[in-house]
Design a protein around this nucleic acid. Structure first.
Lengths: 153, 153
DNA sequence: CAATAAAATCGAATATTATTCCAATAATCT
DNA sequence: AGATTATTGGAATAATATTCGATTTTATTG
C-alpha cells in the first residue's frame, strides 16, 4: 500500500467503470502495471467489491430515518434473536450494535412518512426484544457517504 | 420501471462488474435488450454511478463513530457556516441535517481510539457553531449498508 | 376486433476494454 | 557490487460492451 495504491483506491471509489488505461494515466503507470495492482488490491481484500450506486430519490425513497433501539435485556440470547430478525427485514438498510445509550442503531429508507409509519408498526416494532425506539429523521443529506477516507496521514 | 428493471438494479447494486450477458441471463433478456435498459436506468438517474466498495478494516480503519452535533443556534448563517466546514473535512464520512434532538448527525471512521481522539479534538470540535457533541461508537456492524431496498411493494 | 403505430427485443458485426505474457527495468538484500 | 526478487511496460490475445437493422411484442386507435 504505497501512494499509488491510495490513488487507485480513491479513484475507483468514485468511479469503478473508468477504463484501466484511463486510471493508469491518472496514477502514472502503464495499463498492465495498474491492472496488476488492482488485482492485488482485490485479492488482498482492500477492495471488497464493485457496486452500482442507486439514487434513492429517483427510486421513490424520499426519507431516511435513523432509529435508536433499546432492548429489554442485553443477554446474549436477546441480542442474537434481535440480530437474526434484522437480517431478515429488507426494510432495514443498515444496523450497528452500539456502545453507550442505545443498544442498536438502525437506518431505514422509506417512500414517505406513511410508508415509514407502516414500517415502524409492521417491521420495527415487531423485532424481538425491543423495549424502546427513537426515530430521528434526516431532513437533508449534507454530505452523502463518500466511502472510506483513503487519505495519507 | 417494471419487474425486470427492479431485478437489474438489485443485481447491479450487489455486483456491477458482472458481464451484461450474465445479467441478461439472470433477468431473462438478451444481452442487447439488457444493455439498453441499463443505459436507460443510467440516463434516467436511477443509477447514479458505479463505485468500488473498500473494506475499512483492511485499510486500517477499525472503528466507526456516529456523532450527534448540537449548534449554538439554528440561524441560517450558523447552519451554513457549519455545513461549509463539514464539506472541507475529509475525516467526516457522512453528514445529515436532522429533525429532533440534535441538529446534525455525523459519521466518522477512524484507525483507532487515539486516532478518533485526535479527529475529535482537531477536526470536529473546531467546526464552527458547535455547542455540544455526543459520540456513539459502533461495536460491530450487524448489517452493512446494502443499498436502497429495491423491493416490490 | 383488426389495423396501425410505437416500443422493445434479438442476433450478428464492430469497437472497446480487460487480461495475459515476456522482456526490460528498478528495487532489495547479502 | 552482484545476485535475487519484485515491478514495470508494451504487444498479443481474450473477453466484454456497444451498435445496428430486422423482427417480434405491446399498446393505440378507428
Amino acid at each position: 500500500m504505497d501512494r499509488i495504491d491510495v490513488k487507485i483506491l480513491s479513484y475507483l471509489q468514485e468511479d469503478c467503470r473508468m477504463p484501466i488505461s484511463t486510471l493508469a494515466d491518472k496514477v502514472g503507470l502503464s495499463t498492465s502495471a495498474c491492472h496488476r495492482r488492482i488485482k492485488l488490491l482485490e485479492s488482498g481484500g482492500q477492495i471488497s467489491g464493485y457496486v452500482a450506486r442507486l439514487d434513492a430519490k429517483a427510486l421513490g425513497y424520499s426519507i431516511e430515518i435513523f432509529v435508536e433501539i433499546t432492548l429489554h435485556s442485553q443477554s446474549e440470547d436477546t441480542l442474537e434473536q434481535f440480530e437474526i430478525a434484522v437480517q431478515k427485514a429488507p426494510e432495514i438498510s443498515e444496523c450497528h450494535l452500539m456502545a453507550g445509550q442505545a443498544d442498536y442503531l438502525l437506518r431505514v429508507v422509506a417512500q414517505n412518512v406513511a410508508d415509514y409509519e407502516q414500517i415502524h408498526r409492521n417491521a420495527l416494532s415487531r423485532l424481538p426484544g425491543v423495549a424502546h425506539m427513537q426515530s430521528s429523521f434526516s431532513l437533508r443529506t449534507v454530505r452523502p457517504w463518500a466511502g472510506v477516507p483513503v487519505i495519507q496521514r
